[in-house]
Every structure is written in C-alpha cells, then in structure tokens.
C-alpha cells in the first residue's frame, strides 16, 4: 500500500486525465479520514471531563465518527486535554510516536495551549507544541464541549484540504 500510494500520484500525473483520478482519490480518502477520527482516550486533567462529556449522552461525538480507542496503535487523533507536566511530557511523545500515520493532534484548553493558569509553575510544560506538533488549538479553561466540537470540525476542514501528493515518501522524492 505504501509504495502504491506514495508514488502513484507522480506516475498518474504524466498520463492524460491523471489529475482527475488524483482529485477523485483525494476526495474519497479525505472524506473517509475526516469522518472516522478515532481519538486516543488520553485525559490529563480538568479538560478530560469536558472531553468525556463531549463523548457522552448530550453532545455525542459519535455522530462525527469520533470514537475513543484505548490504544495509540488504533488511534489517529489525540486530544491533549489538560496540563502537560514535565514528568508526563516524555510519555506523551512516546504515545504520539506509537500512533500510525496520518495522525492529528488537538490541543484542548489553556494549559496545553500555553501553560494557562500554571504558566509560572516549575513543573509545567508551557504549551504542548513544545513536545508534539499541534493541528488545532481549542481555547478555554476548560473549553465547553461545543468548543471542542468546533475544534473537531476545524480539523475535518483541514483534513479535507489534504492531497495524496503530500503523503509519506512522496514528499521526499519530490
């Protein structure tokens, strides 16, 4: 699958009508990726409760195809919900590395965006983007579930703009 997907766009581009195939494939792949985002159940602090609320009865993230998985190997999305401390930071990096590509990160709440109310603490990492790359930042302390849903929709928009030309090894060959 890897080589096929990685190099196909560049082979196809040279054929007449190849561009149409690429855009159709883009549309299909992005549509399926954006609508089956499986997050890792990873709650750090207060924000975790709003994340769980968003998954539960009233807000029901299931309708966006967001269904929590307990292991990083089955997840494509990680909500960093809460304060990231210096002791936890290496574990977060490890979890992120264990996830398969493509993977996305939503930083949820002030603490994981910038350190928030604990910015001046000796034990807190000042922003999760110092450890792993972040796709969407959701503001609030803690953000309301509606806010998190907005963040997920923003991420879906972002995924839908992606193209297979940006995939894996293709980037290196280009």
């Amino acid at each position: 699958m890897g080589i096929l997907l990685d190099e196909a766009p560049y082979i196809l581009e040279n054929f007449p009508g190849g561009g149409i195939v690429i855009t159709s494939a883009d549309w299909f792949i992005n549509w399926s990726r954006a609508n089956s985002l499986w997050p890792l159940t990873f709650g750090l602090a207060c924000c975790a409760f709003e994340m769980i609320s968003a998954n539960m009865s009233k807000y029901d993230l299931d309708r966006f195809g967001v269904f929590p998985r307990p292991t990083p190997r089955q997840a494509d999305l990680i909500f960093v919900a809460g304060t990231l401390t210096k002791k936890m930071a290496p574990r977060l990096k490890k979890l992120y590395d264990q996830m398969g590509e493509p993977k996305y990160v939503i930083s949820m709440g002030s603490c994981s965006n910038t350190g928030g109310p604990f910015y001046d603490s000796y034990a807190v990492v000042k922003g999760v983007d110092k450890v792993i790359p972040v796709d969407v930042y959701v503001a609030g302390c803690p953000p309301r579930p509606e806010n998190l849903i907005e963040g997920i929709k923003k991420l879906q928009e972002k995924i839908k703009k992606d193209t297979i030309k940006n995939n894996g090894r293709a980037k290196i060959f280009k």
């Binding site: 207060c46 809460g82 401390t85 002791k87 109310p117 001046d120 603490s121 000796y122 034990a123 807190v124």
Partner: peptide, 28 residues
Amino acid sequence: GYLHRGMEKLAESRTYQANIAMSDRFDY
C-alpha cells in the same frame, strides 16, 4: 506525580482571591 503542577508553591505568589480561583483545579 504525573500531574504535579506545583499548585501549593504557586499559591504563595497569588492573592487570596486568586487562590480561590486556583482551588477549582485541585480536585476538578
């Protein structure tokens, strides 16, 4: 200790009212 945020130390540099706001985050 994976969530040690140094709250008791931070409390020393905050006013009393600000500490009530921070106490929200002890047991959320």
